[in-house]
Simulated scan of single mutants.
Amino acid sequence: MREYTGAVLFVDILGISALTTSEKPLIEPRDFLALGAKTGSDGSNQLFCANLLSKFRKTLRQRRRDGLHISQLSDCAFLWSKKPSLVVEAARDLFQQNASTGILARAGMTYGQIIEPEKTNTSLGQFICGEAVTRAAKLEGAGKGSRVFIDREIGGLHIQSMSPKAFEGLPNPSDYRVVDEFLWFSCPKDLESRADKAARLKGIATQIIRFRHAPAFRWNASSAAGRIHIGATIERLSVAAKALALEMNVEPPHFALQTSEVFQELYEDAQYSSEREQKLHARVERWHEEYKP
């Protein structure tokens, strides 16, 4: 066995258990269309799940880099490396692409002991264990929403070209315990101009609108459990958007921002439409034109 210190990311797709165990059909033909998948003969929950996992696998393949190891286990995956920067950058890019594709995922990311075999039969896939692996899997469930929860070790590392502001701690409202996370949706550079900040704020608002209105997330929002996760995601991104707007001394894009409670109270199936999404994206563009340098 080979033992070393490195970074580990554990990613899990949210909602798969409900999708595969429900006796009722949760999926409609438009969900296949939004995912860019074929409905097949029955358009069942199971077939949609298979297509979703295939999309997830594709996004994982696109993250491949020298020195970065990736192993998918159905609806979850491990990514690890001796170089923490490779794992952190992969987490950012993976979650941004997940949001674009319509995959609602959550993760835990740690730094510490990794143990892997000297030789692995790759036909069965790669595998790892170790203290960092165990903590990453445990951290994944530290909160609600499409977020990347981290330990203090990886949060304290210097990641080249990325500001420490990409790692932040927030109190959990339920028990006031501080939960550290990696802000995949808002990763400032070490040196950031006002134009960079405006572009980052625009990006956060764009992501919020996707979670609120993109047809690809309709099936997630159709269940109460799914709405909790989407609502938590929207609220977390809204908090980040307000903080960045305050830092820039500009008016936040209030039309895009929302709390989890308001999202769940006002939810209606019809809100997940391309028309509504595009209309709000256009408002973001107008807002950005007004406030960019």
Rank of each mutant, 00 (worst) to 15 (best):
S260T: 01
L35Q: 09
D93E: 14
S260I: 01
E140K: 10
G143V: 10
G226V: 07
I150R: 01
S223V: 05
R236L: 07
D66W: 01
G143Q: 10
S100Y: 07
N220W: 01
V284D: 04
A243N: 11
D12W: 06
G40Y: 06
E28K: 13
S41Y: 07
W184A: 06
I208S: 02
V179G: 01
R64T: 12
R2G: 03
K144G: 02
L53Q: 15
L157A: 04
R147F: 03
V133P: 03
D180K: 12
S161F: 13
K58H: 14
N121M: 10
F255S: 09
P164C: 14
I234W: 02
Q46C: 02
S161Q: 14
R227H: 04
L170I: 13
L52F: 06
V178Y: 08
Y176F: 12
K82D: 06
I114N: 04
S186I: 00
D42Y: 12
G40T: 08
E277V: 00
A240K: 10
N98C: 15
E277R: 09
D180Q: 14
E192V: 13
L104H: 13
V87Y: 03
W80T: 07
L60D: 07
E116D: 12
S146D: 03
G36S: 09
L266M: 07
L68P: 05
I228E: 15
I159Y: 03
P29H: 09
G169E: 13
V262P: 00
A225K: 11
S193L: 06
I13G: 04
T5W: 01
A37N: 11
L14M: 08
F217D: 03
S274D: 07
S54P: 00
Q72K: 06
K165A: 15
L68N: 08
K189F: 11
P188K: 12
I114V: 13
A77T: 07
Y267K: 04
A225R: 08
A245T: 06
L14V: 11
D151P: 02
A199L: 11
S260P: 00
G156W: 05
H69N: 14
F255N: 09
F10G: 01
N98I: 02
L191A: 13
Q258E: 15
R227G: 03
G43I: 06
I208C: 03
P252D: 10
S238L: 10
H213P: 00
K38H: 08
E275L: 11
L157C: 03
K165R: 15
C129P: 00
I208N: 02
I13N: 08
R218D: 01
R152L: 06
I27K: 03
R286L: 15
R106S: 06
Q264R: 13
A195S: 15
Q278N: 12
A243S: 14
G145A: 09
K292F: 04
R283N: 05
T21Y: 02
C49V: 12
E168V: 12
Q97G: 01
T5G: 00
A198K: 00
R92T: 12
K82Q: 13
C49N: 12
H229R: 03
R135G: 00
G130H: 09
I115V: 15
K138F: 04
F78V: 05
Q72I: 10
V250D: 02
P84G: 08
K279G: 07
W80M: 08
A18D: 14
I128D: 02
F95W: 01
H281C: 05
F95R: 01
I209C: 14
R286A: 15
R218H: 10
V88M: 09
S222Y: 01
T122N: 13
G112H: 05
A243K: 12
F211H: 13
